[in-house]
Amino acid sequence: MFELIGIPPQALLGQLFLGLINGSFYATLSLGLAVIFGLLHIINFAHGAFYMLGAFAAWFGLTHFGIGYWSALVLAPLIVGAAGIAVERLLIARISGLNVLYGLLLTFGLALVVQGLVRNFYGSSGLRYPVPADLAGGKNLGFMFLPWYRGWVLAISVVVCLTTWFVIERTRIGSTLRAAQENPGLVEAFGINVPRLVSLTYGVGVALAAFAGVLAAPIYSVQPEMGADLLIVVFAVVVIGGMGSILGSILTGLGLGLIEGLTKVFYPEASNVVIFVIMVVVLMIKPEGLFGSAQ
């Protein structure tokens, strides 16, 4: 068995793989943020709360109704997406046209409400969600151990991200969405219901977050703050990548996850902050972000 600068390759590849898992969550969440931002021009501070709600809905369904993982993977995003549409209609739509910072403040308040409610009824200690039986265990690949569930999370995240990219860049509804990002007034004048498109976009964006939440439930413990802390990292990811490009968001998310994994191997003390440090460096060199365009 050879060693790389004193690190056994098993540990290195294992950490890199874990990094990719984290990166897939960064990618999915920053993708949702970018899609919402593109049309609504708000940064959805409640994104972490919706992610947490996805994980929590899966736990709730299993505990109280015996709804299994695979059903939860479909149901939780649908329920959370519907809630998102209601939120957009009832709250966010009322501040359209105001300074964009109001959207940030509004959704921050929303996140506090959701997190506070969940913590109030279920406490802040983590709730356990089991790995689905179909995906228990794993396989020793010789150079590393691959837990099936984590492999699944990585694969499905990449599939979901690429599907989102495909829908936005290659379909009719996607072209309508892009047009509405550019000039909503004209799109409306062509006979398209832009307010409905906006609600739908917000719903789909938060449904993506909820989907990621269900994926995360068996890996991380389900607790009210799980989304808030993650969201701050995702904000840094968004600043690093810029929000102009869908593929850019996906690549940035996965890449930063990898870098974080590497840091865990070589300099674990810095692994919590490495993404923030990269953000600082990127801001110094290319303030508009790797895939952003100067406004």
Partner: peptide, 28 residues
């Protein structure tokens, strides 16, 4: 628009992020 009024705006209103064909098929 749905009542049958079609609009060609000033500066033409061609969407930069859409291809020609996507622009053509944008209005329902």
């Amino acid at each position: 628009a749905r009542l049958g009024m079609g609009y060609v705006p000033e500066e033409r209103g061609i969407f930069a992020s859409l291809s020609v064909r996507e622009n053509l098929f944008l209005p329902p």
